[in-house]
Nucleic acid binder design. Structure first.
Lengths: 199, 199
DNA sequence: CGCATTTTTGATACACGTCAATCTCCGTGG
DNA sequence: CCACGGAGATTGACGTGTATCAAAAATGCG
């Protein structure tokens, strides 16, 4: 039970400490103090300061990933985190800290595989990079709410004009079907043809 | 002491279990069984099977990184590992497993930062990608033994002809000075001008 | 409705890819 | 010691995918 042994651990408290974030929402900035989280749902974009002082895309965090674990070592976030889709986060470590050993090992193995996926998003022809990213962002039902073209561009190391042309092309070839969702920009919500969905 | 409690843990045994690898040497292949290691010195290239069955560059492992920790979960390596520079590896986890909790947390934070570095190697202009990689590969004294052009190409998502042109250009602009090292291909060993070395 | 933001589209430029011909290095065997 | 051969590196000519620049069109908001 760690630091909180003996304190009220009722369901309501645990539920209260969950955090959810809307697309575009800034979770935290590099250098700030804060907690570590486990991503329960959604996709986050992580940015790091480059040598020239500008924030550059560094990584994605996806369901299951640990966010900001370095705060437990240095007391500050290394990356800025912005929600790309709607996200749900839970404080980490959760539950019994004695079990966190194997959970940590699993998280490390996951982080290494996740890194490989993101590397793949930045190589090869532009079309493939964008469809791979869409696959990552799509929910199980074949719906996606895409981030702004500019974000997709920075993640894939392309330009937003290129992203626009590619997505329009996917629309025209019926791979993406525009869908209207209240409160979501009309150019962001799509239904995805099963052809490019994860096996 | 974990599994080996009470067994001979003398210095000679620990030394015997270290592993070193020469540039180009295959450490292990994806799917094989084996141990987890900590990289003590050198740089490894990790490859993953792509959808089409070919091995694709996935990540780099650098001094301090944990290699193959997933074998402790699944019993098999996820990535193939090839030494790019001369490497020294030590079995992991080392020493007292009770201390591995904080060590694991540190490894996780490291892995996430490492991933960001590798993402940066695959974005922006070709020249910058190559010099960043050279910076990663260089030793403290400003010497590098580069891997074959083809490896550099796959890591940076460029073509080997492009790499050749860039490295020749760095030679001509005196950023790289060819150095002769016995047993090393003449086009691989360089002295690096301080201009592009890590601050 | 007017305005800021984002997206789309077009025309053009260029960095890098592609293809193909050497060239260099280095191990091997005569 | 030198001829040979293979692997990797270099170089040139040319093609093309994406970047760049610029303008217009959507979209959402007060």
């Amino acid at each position: 039970m760690g630091l909180f042994s003996g304190l009220d651990r009722g369901v309501t408290q645990v539920a209260r400490r969950l955090r959810s974030a809307l697309p575009g929402e800034l979770l935290h900035q590099a250098g700030e103090a804060g907690l570590a989280w486990r991503v329960g749902k959604g996709v986050l974009r992580l940015d790091m300061m480059a040598d020239d002082g500008t924030a550059a895309f560094a990584s994605l965090a996806i369901a299951g990933d640990i966010l900001g674990c370095e705060t437990m070592l240095f007391g500050a976030y290394t990356f800025s985190a912005v929600a790309l889709t709607q996200c749900e986060l839970a404080p980490w470590p959760e539950g019994d800290p004695d079990a966190s050993g194997s959970s940590l090992l699993e998280s490390l193995a996951n982080a290494q595989r996740r890194a490989a996926e993101i590397v793949a998003l930045r190589g090869g022809p532009a079309l493939g990079r964008v469809t791979s990213l869409i696959r990552l962002l799509a929910d199980g039902a074949g719906k996606v709410v895409l981030p702004p073209r500019q974000d997709i561009a920075e993640i894939t190391d392309l330009r937003f004009e290129t992203i626009s042309r590619i997505i329009k092309g996917l629309e025209r070839s019926q791979v993406l079907l525009p869908v209207r969702i209240e409160g979501v920009h009309a150019t962001r919500a799509y239904s995805v043809a099963s052809g490019i969905l994860p096996a």
